[in-house]
Amino acid sequence: MAQRTIEIIVGLFMVAGLAALLVLALQVSGLSPKAAESTYTLYANFNDTGGLTPRGKVSMAGVTVGTIESISLDKETFQARVKMSIHSEVDNIPADSSAVIRTSGLLGEQYIDISVGGDMESLQAGDTFYSTQSAMNLERLISNFASGK
């Protein structure tokens, strides 16, 4: 076969590889080209984060509005401090909204749901949620139920 033909076929092969990488990036891992969109940071303190993990989603009314950046322990209050980055276009979260840890399905992964309040003021970058609701701990729930408390 002519060298030229081989070069073209190999070129197509490389392009196919690149296309496969793009499919994996965009379609499979959901990396959107505007991944570097601007966000702002909010904090929330929880008594128990349960199985919450970084990269988990933050949603409002079921719509993803941000991701969990990091989870650390506040050494003074012994509470977990969760750092979230929220998409900039969602800039009017009422100041008295609360952050609730929920589970998708019975055994699915845990995420933070922002349950909306009624305040006219909205949370600014760097603010902390005033009220939070910790993870529902299935084990504790059952033991509480069993001991009749």
């Binding site: 990488l21 994996l24 990036a25 499979v28 891992s29 959901g30 990396l31 990269r55 989603k57």
Partner: peptide, 12 residues
Amino acid sequence: NMQSSVDFVDDV
């Protein structure tokens, strides 16, 4: 489901 669990750097 796929997109929320597959991470580009960690997995791909």
